[in-house]
Write a protein that binds this DNA or RNA. Structure first.
Lengths: 362, 362
DNA sequence: GTAACCATGGGATACGGTTTCGCCACCGGC
DNA sequence: GCCGGTGGCGAAACCGTATCCCATGGTTAC
C-alpha cells in the first residue's frame, strides 16, 4: 500500500527551472509573472520565452502560502440538482468569476453532520468565505454548532454567509442573505383566497425546515386576514420533491378530503400534485387550482403554466458574494462593525394559468 | 489602495502555536494529527487538548505544498443550472466525497475561450484531474488547443477527462467517458417510425455541437433503415433550451410545415415544443407526438409524461471519477499505457405517454 | 567632479506544514 | 555490567513562491 509514486513522475516545472533556464534569478521570474515590479523588456522577453517553452504555470498552493493567491469561496448546498439552489450557486459563481475568484462546491445531502464536516474542511482550505445554501434545521444543538463555526471562520479571517435561511440568534459574525419568505407565502395564499378558494390543501414542506415554517406562517396569516378559518387537517408535511407532491394529493383524494386548490411549498411539489390530480381525472385549473413557490424554469414549462412566487435566487447568490467582497475590501477600519448583517430581498407573485375561481359544486 | 490589512488581524493558529503551547515540537504535532507515526498516548492527549482549545485546523495549502494534501478534481461545465450536467456533476462530486476528495467547479458559459482559460487555472491549482462536461465544438483549432492542454496536464501529473463528447483525435493522453449518443437517437427515431410516423420535425441542437451531430446522424440512419426518405427541410437547428423548442415549432406551424411528430434534441427542447403545440390548439399526443432526449426529471413531470432516451448522466460522473482514481492508484507501473481510454455507457428508450400513432388525415 | 538618486536585478527569508535523520533513554540478553 | 536494539521525540531540511533588503551601474543635480 505504501508504494508511493516513483518512476515516470516528471512533475511540473517550478519557478526555479524557469529561472535557471533563462539565466536569471527566481525573484526576477516572479516579478515578470506577477507584473507588479518594473522589469526591463529584455528580461521580460527572456523569461516569457522560457515560460512558454516549459509550459510553466505557477503553483497556486505555494503562491497562496506566500501571501498572494486568488481568493476562493466555498458553496455548500444539499444537492446540486435542485434548481433553486443551482441558481444561487450560479449567481455566486458568476460574481466570483467576475472578480477572478474561484469557487469550491460541496454537497451535504441534507445531512447536518456532513454539513458541519464540510465547513471544517473549507476552513482548512483558507477560503475567503463559506456560503451555506438552503433552509436550516431548527435544532438547538445545530444552531449552536453553526454559531461556533461562524466564530471560528471569523477568527481565521474568513466569513460565514447563510443564504435562504433566517439569521443565527445572538451576536454571531455571520452575514445572512434571505428573501421575504413569509410575505411571499402570504401573497400567494391571498391570491387563492381572493379568487374565492376556501378549502385549500397546503403542502408547506418538512415541519422542521425553517423555510417550510415560514411559508406555512405566511399562508396562515393570509387566512386570518381573510377571516377564513385555517384547518390544520388540510396541511400535509413532507420533503420538497415531486414524489411528495404526488403522494400527498393522491392520499388526500383517497381519504375524501375536500379541496378546490393546492398551495404547494415549491414548484416541484406543485408539479407532482398536478400530475396526481390528472391521474385522478381532475383538470387543472378547471377543477382544482394549483400554485407553487420558487419560480424555477419548470414553473413556466408545465401545462398549465404555474402561478407561483418569484424568489430571486440568482440575485441572492450575487448579493452573497458581493457581501463578502465588500467586507474584504473595506475590511481595514470601519465597517467591520456590521457583523450580524442581514440582507432581505423581495419576492412577488407571478400570475400564470394555474388558478381559476373554484367551480360551483352541490 | 496599498493599505493592506493591519489591525485586528488575529490570523489563524499555526502548528507552531500548538507545539509551543503544548510544550512539544512541531514534528510531534504533525505526527499526532496525521496519525501515520507512533506517538505515546500522553503526547497525543496533550496535543489534542491544545488543538481543541485553539480550534486549530491544518493549512491545506501548506500541506499540499509539502507533498500531502487531499486530491482535488475540477469540474468544468457550461451552466450549473442545466439538469443533465448537474447530474454528471453530482455523480463526480459524490464519488469524490466518498474518497475524501474535493471538487472545484467552474462554469464556462459556452465560451471556448473561457473554457481554455479555466483549464489553465485548474492546472495552477494542481488538481488531480480536470473533468470537462458537455459537447465540444467542432473547430480544428479548438481541438488542437484541447490536445495541448491534455498533454500539459498529463506532464504535470494531472489528467484530462472528457465527459459526453467524442474523444480527441490522435494519441492524446485524455480519458473520454461517453454514452452511445447516436444509437440512442437511432432507437428513439425508430420508435416514432414504427409507430407509423413519417413526417417528423427534427430539432437536433446547434449544428456545430458534436452532441447534436450525433443525434442527427442517429435519426437519419433510422430513417434509412425504415426506407423513409429523410427530408432536410424538416430539420431546425438551435440551442438546447426551452425557447428554441417553442419557437421552432411555432415557426414551423406558421410556415405550414406538415408533421405528425417532433423529435427533440433534449427534454427541455421537447418541453418548449409541447407548449407551442398546445398554444396552437394541438393536443399531445393525440394530434402530434413528441419525444425528447436525456431523461432528466422534467421528462416524467411533464403532462403527458415524455417518452425519451435515458442517458446515465450521474453514472457517467461516477465513472469519470473512478477512472482518474484508478489511474492514480495503479499509476506506478502497468496500466499507464491505456492512455486514450474511451469508456462508452449505454442508453435506452424510456417509453412514457407522449407518442401515439399518427391520426388519420385527409 | 562628486553626491544623491533612480531603475533593475540578485540573495535571503518567510509562509505553514511534512518528513528524514539522528539522538536519547530505556529495555532485555548475555 | 556491557552492549545492541527499539520506541519516542526534536532539529532541520525541504516543498514553490512572493517580497524585503541590498548591490550595482548609469543618470541627474549641484
Amino acid at each position: 500500500m505504501s508504494q508511493r509514486k516513483a518512476d515516470g513522475d516528471a512533475g511540473r516545472a517550478t519557478i526555479r527551472d524557469v529561472a535557471e533556464r533563462a539565466g536569471v534569478s527566481v525573484a526576477s521570474v516572479s516579478r515578470v509573472l506577477s507584473g507588479n515590479y518594473p522589469v526591463s523588456d529584455e528580461l521580460r522577453r527572456r523569461v516569457m520565452k522560457v515560460v512558454r517553452d516549459l509550459d510553466y504555470v505557477t503553483n497556486a498552493h505555494a503562491r497562496s502560502l506566500a501571501g498572494g493567491g486568488t481568493p476562493t469561496v466555498a458553496i455548500l448546498l444539499n444537492n446540486i440538482t435542485g434548481a433553486a439552489f443551482a441558481h444561487v450557486a450560479k449567481g455566486v459563481e458568476g460574481a466570483a468569476t467576475l472578480r477572478g475568484w474561484l469557487s469550491l462546491v460541496g454537497t451535504t445531502g441534507d445531512d447536518p453532520e456532513r454539513e458541519l464536516a464540510l465547513v471544517n474542511l473549507m476552513r482548512q482550505q483558507g477560503v475567503a468565505a463559506v456560503i451555506l445554501l438552503g433552509g436550516a434545521y431548527d435544532y438547538d444543538e445545530y444552531q449552536l454548532r453553526m454559531a461556533r463555526f461562524a466564530r471560528s471562520l471569523d477568527a481565521a479571517g474568513s466569513h460565514l454567509v447563510l443564504v435562504g435561511r433566517p439569521p443565527l440568534e445572538g451576536d454571531v459574525p455571520a452575514t445572512t442573505v434571505d428573501y421575504d419568505n413569509e410575505s411571499g407565502a402570504y401573497a400567494m395564499a391571498s391570491h387563492l383566497l381572493s379568487a374565492g378558494h376556501r378549502r385549500v390543501l397546503v403542502l408547506p414542506g418538512h415541519a422542521e425546515l425553517t423555510t417550510a415554517q415560514g411559508r406555512l406562517r405566511g399562508a396562515r396569516r393570509a387566512f386570518e386576514a381573510y377571516g377564513v378559518p385555517f384547518d390544520p387537517g388540510m396541511v400535509r408535511h413532507g420533503p420538497y420533491d415531486y414524489e411528495h407532491g404526488y403522494e400527498a394529493v393522491e392520499t388526500s383524494l383517497r381519504e375524501g378530503l375536500d379541496f378546490t386548490a393546492v398551495l404547494a411549498g415549491t414548484d416541484v411539489v406543485a408539479a407532482g400534485a398536478m400530475q396526481a390530480l390528472r391521474a385522478a381525472g381532475l383538470r387543472v385549473p378547471e377543477d382544482v387550482s394549483i400554485v407553487g413557490y420558487d419560480d424555477i424554469p419548470l414553473a413556466s414549462q408545465l401545462t398549465p403554466q404555474l402561478t407561483t412566487v418569484h424568489v430571486p435566487y440568482e440575485e441572492m447568490g450575487r448579493v452573497a458574494l458581493r457581501a463578502v467582497a465588500d467586507r474584504r475590501e473595506g475590511g481595514a477600519g470601519r465597517r467591520r462593525s456590521a457583523d450580524g448583517e442581514h440582507l432581505v430581498l423581495g419576492t412577488h407573485v407571478v400570475v400564470r394559468n394555474s388558478v381559476r375561481p373554484p367551480a360551483l359544486r352541490d
